[in-house]
């Protein structure tokens, strides 16, 4: 189970942290990971480029694929933000697993609800209800 694995991992780091704590509070702890400026700028311009790309893509006629194309670009952008701006590449594995695990629950929620709505839509009589 992903949880327990992450927990054990977390624990190892934890005991080290405490061993460290015993020596007092002086010195650089090394938990700060300042991002280099070139990286921040590179990510920003990549995000801008992807925004232009998604606007351009919206002018193409991709039919049913349009939504998937724009979602893919959005997901790449989101991944850039999470990995670099939100420092996930330096974060603890537990935090990463937790956040990504959340997406499973979101998928569960959306998946079941959508599946159900599509399956019962035929049971609803079309046009039987008039708007207020």
């Amino acid at each position: 189970m992903a949880h327990s694995h992450a927990n054990q991992h977390e624990h190892h780091e934890k005991s080290e942290g405490h061993a460290h704590a015993g020596h007092g509070h002086h010195g650089h702890h090394g938990f700060a990971h300042p991002s280099p400026i070139w990286q921040l700028l590179a990510v920003f311009f990549a995000l801008l480029a992807l925004t232009v790309l998604t606007v351009y893509q919206s002018t193409l006629d991709l039919g049913n694929m349009e939504i998937w194309a724009s979602l893919t670009i959005a997901t790449i952008k989101a991944a850039l933000v999470i990995l670099f701006f939100m420092h996930m590449i330096h974060d603890k594995p537990f935090n990463i697993i937790m956040f990504l695990g959340t997406l499973v629950f979101v998928a569960l929620f959306l998946g079941f609800t959508l599946m159900d709505a599509h399956n019962y839509k035929d049971l609803i009589e079309p046009g039987s209800i008039t708007p207020k």
Binding site: M115, D116, Y120, L123
Partner: peptide, 18 residues
């Protein structure tokens, strides 16, 4: 616990497969 919420809705008009 996150996988079973639909059992409150068996008679609410949920689709059969769900």
């Amino acid at each position: 616990g996150f996988l079973v919420w639909g059992h409150h809705m068996f008679t609410s008009g949920m689709a059969e497969v769900t």
